[in-house]
Nucleic acid binder design. Structure first.
Lengths: 340, 340
DNA sequence: CTGAAAGCGCTTACAG
DNA sequence: CTGAAAGCGCTTACAG
């Protein structure tokens, strides 16, 4: 069936007009008589005609399609960002397609790897999990990418990156979290997740330490466990803490870098017979759809991911060179309790 | 920066050859001397040149981009399908973009609504939640869509739809689930979720009844509660069952149409002080990433959604007119217990 | 209000 | 191995 697509010439000859006229009614221009507009529209419908976006794009030098580079969508956090971006793009008549990247793989940012052809009007790239020693490589790749098309950054964007961006201030979020736990009376607060990154004033590590300092609490290496953001890593991290420390040093609260890790922590704590939230408060980040249905229902940080995605699309399309920071809120549920 | 894109003419003149030659090295043809290939490639790199997909597509009448019509990605079930499709598309050099639809909204299947332009080489559409009285409308829309581009269906596809498809045999899955619960000694088995659809031999309803019949168990309307597949709907559905029935009739097992509803059921059962799995076994469907981390860990059906998405892309690109049925497996976890 | 014609940036026979 | 030229299906001044 497909393949025998009508062209503007078919419509023109069917309607007995020139292709210029067909083009005019297609584009909804005013200067066409009602009668000919009628004829043309009838011909279009009869043939089920749709203009070729390729031909249109050739003239306008535009594709009306965007790209977004994101880690695995299987983490609902990214699915939320993608959804927000997709909906905004659709609203503006754009299509958006996903380019996955493997964290830590610098090639993922390389335009040559990513885009064999020039078919995107712009691209959003999520900057995250950048180890210190790769920072410059990544920045160079991004600058290279920008030579080819407009770029907007999301994620935890270092402030000295000179790109339009809508980023998260992870440090400020962490500070809030620590303050919240302190307000519940916690003093032994562990933090799990992430990799060792440097040079970034917005990273969680910084906020964690700052939060402790403000509460006049000591920072302890034993409370800082690294691990990538999966449930399995959460299990491992919690085990590390509770296995390496004598019971009197066990933390009364654990901050997980995301809800995925927090889910693993819950499971592992349960396995160990640690009562939640009585003996252990737990807080995640991302406020995934499942957070309210975990046991105990998970307190988390909602950072409006859909809005982030939508906003990035707006910046991309408008071409504004702004750096914005997303806001967030702490969603209290049952997983954090007051210390007696 | 963007906007000043080099064209094939620039490269040709830089390299001192004709555009035909540039085109040849671009496409990796053999009949080019090593020396000129060198020159051309150098020019390409120097200018950071990338061919215009629009111009290429104009000649080949192809866009190398696909579409997929899916309900909300915020349900990880669909994110899995999308991911599988996206990865396979990328592997084959295609880009895929998402077109969301509102369930029950027939217009969502209408090519005119969905695609103002002809910019897709084909489209995958997820057929689900089709109320009986809309079936014909939807079918007509799909046939209309097929006039414009190749279409592959996924979801619960009625067998009399004459489309290439990779579908789920929901009836067979439900039969399996009932048999599994019966093997654990359950006789009071409720089923929640879905809408009243008719005419479809693959729908869950059918399998549920058939499973009961094979176990020589009666079908009871009170054990069949409808509701769309959200956690909130799961809460409401479980409430309905336990509120309207005297305790001696309370089901000992509940089948939820998906894990989302099952999550709601867990929460509501917990609120009511119903011990799980001792007093109530629960089984979901989709095997979401969070299933192992719920409490109790949720038994569910894994139907290889990523594979489904990938397979649909393969059918779409190859043009095979096949109807396939995906397989599935029951993943046992802690949420189902043997009846004493 | 309408048409003829050039041009967008490629690919592809066809010559040589 | 390489080039000149036609053609893909539109849009857009430019005339009328």
């Amino acid at each position: 069936m497909p393949g025998e697509n009508a062209t503007i010439y078919d419509i023109a000859s069917d309607a007995g007009v020139s292709i210029a006229t067909v083009s005019r009614v297609l584009r909804g221009e005013q200067n066409v008589s009602a009668a000919t507009k009628e004829k043309v529209q009838r011909a279009i419908e009869k043939r089920n005609y749709r203009p070729s976006s390729n031909a249109r794009g050739l003239t306008s030098n535009t594709t009306h399609s965007l790209g977004i580079v994101l880690p695995k969508l299987l983490n609902p956090h990214y699915a939320m960002i993608f959804t927000g971006a997709q909906e905004e793009a659709a609203r503006q008549g754009y299509t958006i397609s996903l380019f996955p990247w493997n964290s830590l793989d610098t090639r993922a940012y390389d335009p040559a790897t990513m885009l064999a052809e020039r078919r995107l009007d712009g691209i959003i790239v999520c900057v995250e999990y950048l180890p210190a020693d790769r920072g410059e490589q990544v920045l160079a790749s991004l600058q290279n990418l920008r030579r080819v098309m407009p770029v907007v950054l999301i994620g935890c964007v270092p402030p000295w990156y000179d790109f339009p961006a809508v980023s998260n201030n992870n440090a400020a979020i962490m500070k809030d979290i620590v303050a919240y736990l302190v307000s519940l009376g916690h003093e032994k607060i562990a933090f799990i997740g992430g990799i060792r990154e440097d040079n970034d004033p917005m990273r969680r590590e910084i906020g964690y330490r700052e939060g402790l300092r403000e509460a006049r609490l000591p920072y302890t290496d034993s409370y800082r466990v690294y691990g990538k953001g999966t449930p399995e890593a959460g299990i491992a991290a919690l085990s590390t803490i509770f296995d390496t420390l004598k019971p009197e040093y066990w933390p009364t609260a654990v901050i997980a870098m995301n809800d995925l890790m927090a889910m693993g922590c819950q499971t592992e704590a349960r396995r160990r017979g640690i009562a939640m939230p009585e003996q252990l408060s737990l807080i995640g980040c991302d406020d995934l759809f499942c957070a309210p249905y975990l046991y105990p229902a998970l307190t988390s940080i909602n950072s409006h991911q859909q809005r982030t995605g939508a906003r990035a699309v707006q910046l991309l399309i408008s071409g504004e060179n702004k750096q914005e920071t997303g806001d967030w809120e702490l969603v209290e549920r049952a997983s954090c309790a007051r210390i007696k």
